[in-house]
Each structure stands twice: as structure tokens, then as C-alpha cells.
């Protein structure tokens, strides 16, 4: 891009690409379909060691979200995308805190709580 190119954007909106092309969406669709099929296959199969299935599903889901972000929402690591990526990073941090924090606290609480039957007995 030349220095005085009036159309040369130095920052981009999310969902917008310099060379917004159909090909990007086709590649994204292909990857997303592949990851979805693998997810559904792994969930129903007995070929994989059982306890590893939730981990595999989580990894596949995160990969597919990444594919959506890059190919559909055009969030990239380029210097014109820093604002979008910083907002995304903050969002991901909050989501992680809410999810992990809730699960952690609630599992500890369930663990440390008296079984419900005994609790009912005491209240009688």
C-alpha cells in the first residue's frame, strides 16, 4: 500500500478484510465442517479411550472457534487488528474467570457439604 493511498486503511473493523474474498469463507467453511464432523464422530465412537473424549471435544471446539474468528470474523494478529484482539483477549479472560471460578467453587462446595439426606434429617 502506498503512503498516500487514500483507501489504505490503517486499522480495520472486525469482520472486514483488506482482500475480503469468497475464498476466505470457503476455506473457513471447509475447516469448520471438518472440525464439526470430527467432533460428532468422536462423541459417538468407542474407538477412543473414554476419559479423553471430553478433552478432545474441548480442544476441537476451541479450534473451531478460532477458525470462525479468523475466517469469518477476520480477527487476525496483524497490526491493524490490535484493538479488536485486545478486546477479545479481555473477553476471553472474563469468560475463563466466570467458567473456571464457578466450576471450582461449586465443586468444592458440593464436596464439603453434608449429604442432602443427612441435612434434611437434622432439620426435622
Amino acid at each position: 500500500m502506498s503512503e498516500f493511498d487514500p483507501d489504505g486503511p490503517t486499522d480495520v473493523a472486525p469482520g472486514e478484510d483488506d482482500a475480503e474474498s469468497v475464498l476466505t469463507y470457503v476455506v473457513g467453511l471447509g475447516l469448520a465442517v471438518a472440525l464439526t464432523i470430527v467432533s460428532f464422530f468422536i462423541a459417538g465412537t468407542s474407538l477412543v479411550w473414554g476419559p479423553s473424549i471430553p478433552v478432545a471435544l474441548t480442544v476441537l471446539a476451541i479450534a473451531q472457534m478460532g477458525v470462525h474468528l479468523v475466517f469469518f470474523l477476520h480477527i487476525t494478529t496483524g497490526p491493524d487488528n490490535v484493538n479488536n484482539v485486545m478486546a477479545l483477549a479481555f473477553g476471553v479472560l472474563i469468560v475463563m474467570l466466570i467458567m473456571a471460578g464457578s466450576l471450582w467453587i461449586m465443586s468444592h462446595m458440593n464436596h464439603n457439604m453434608m449429604p442432602m439426606e443427612q441435612l434434611m434429617q437434622m432439620q426435622r
Binding site: 473493523a13 472486514e16 478486546a87 473477553g91 469468560v95
Partner: peptide, 19 residues
């Protein structure tokens, strides 16, 4: 760009609500 950025922040807050 500013409109897109503002809407992006709304979407992230929507995702936080979903979380």
C-alpha cells in the same frame, strides 16, 4: 471502523453473558 469496534465490544459482552 469505530462502528464495527463498538459492536465487537457489545458482542463480547453478550458472550460474557452467555458464559
Amino acid at each position: 471502523i469505530i462502528t464495527g469496534y463498538g459492536f465487537w465490544i457489545f458482542l463480547l459482552s453478550d458472550i460474557i453473558m452467555f458464559s
